[in-house]
Amino acid sequence: MRGVRLRTVVMAVAIGVAVTLAGCGEPAAPSGGTGGSGGTSGTGTAKSAPATFTGPSRKPDVTVVSATVSRGKVEIAQNGVNAQGRVKVRRGATVRITVTTDEADEFHLHGYDRTLKLSPGRPGTLDVVADKTGVFEAELHHSGARVFELQVS
């Protein structure tokens, strides 16, 4: 009983402290990058030149995700294999997302807050360094279609 009580209290206190600490988040990355770790490349296909001291997130661990949305139906493949709804990667992996839609739309990956403008029938590509863990939704802004979920663990 005492142990239960203590743990509950400790847990509740921890939450309170964490909230106090939560304060105001972390500063934005300086140069328009969204990833905080500086490993995220911009929209488009060109990759920035590899920096010298970027640590483990620069391993050649690239997951290729291709999504096609036509008439509201979504098809996804992860590294060429058909995937269902959820794309699973390890933290630090680079995810290269290619999206093709039959209507003009905007692709949005939540949490990482990356967007990609899409014209009908023309594939758009986005490179994301998966540096935050969790499950993140990727959707099309105009049609509202959920494209996939990115699970980073």
Partner: peptide, 22 residues
Amino acid sequence: LLGSTGHRIDYDLAGPTLTAQV
């Protein structure tokens, strides 16, 4: 006002291990 304009969520405040344990 608070010096946090433009900041982003710091996801490391509750990592996956802590979250799962909680």
